[in-house]
Amino acid sequence: MSILVNKDTRVIVQGFTGSQATLHSEQAIDYGTNIVGGITPGKGGQTHLGKPVFDTMDEAIKSVQPNASLIFVPAPFCKDSILEAAESGIELIVCITEGVPTLDMLDVKKRVDELGLSLIGPNCPGLITPGEAKLGIMPASIHMKGSIGIISRSGTLTYEAVKQTTDLGFGQSSCVGIGGDPIPGSSFIDILELFENDPQTEAIVMVGEIGGTAEENAAEYIKNNVSKPVISYIAGQTAPAGKRMGHAGAIISGGKGTAADKISKLKECGVHVADNLTEIGSTVAKVINK
């Protein structure tokens, strides 16, 4: 078992023929991911990386029956592409693209929620189930099939957590980068729920950072709903408060969002917090081998 994707997931790539999509699709196919085709408007009928290219999602659904979409289209077109996938009934949409306007995401998120679909990203490394499927831009080599579920808001920090759990021999059930944007498609809570229900996952690593209240909300959820051990690291403990523009942001977060707030809330809710970035793996070991 794993979460969201496995070797049977049928993946369609939106923006398939672009350079980034080509690079990462090639690596995903090498990894064993079942990519069934791609979409690039105007290039329908061609073959790319040995897979069929379609003009529309509608044609792709009829022809190759994908159930997950991986999006690499440029930021100005992401709203269109996510909605195209969502309206056609794709169950899982992973958007890698960075720089999507926030107001586009407000509209998209509302529609995706109404349809009850899973959207991961944007501005994220994607997700991987080691040994089965890779929908994203993470380096495959650091992963190992195993028992730790990893969720993170940051790309390279996810890799750090993955590497440390691989080096200590635990490996990962699945790893999900939810992205660092203000309005992410999926929250920590959405993914925590999936890991809690996944028998392969024995412990969960949640990597957070300063800003917003996603970690505080997740802490509260963990206290009430997660029976598996959760290990966390929060980046940005030494980041300065920064120049401010007015008060609205501060009022809305009620002064929350600093690393210290997040860490104390997580500890209060029973989460094992690693003091330092280099101690994520060793904290997992301490908790599991107790």
């Binding site: 790309g155 940005g236 403990q237």
Partner: peptide
């Protein structure tokens, strides 16, 4: 550093060992 999260994590690590980024 490559990546914003890792950049913050690196700053934290420097501070943890008594330095200042």
């Amino acid at each position: 550093v490559n990546g914003a999260g890792l950049a913050m994590g690196t700053m934290d690590t420097i501070k943890y060992f008594g330095g200042n980024p």
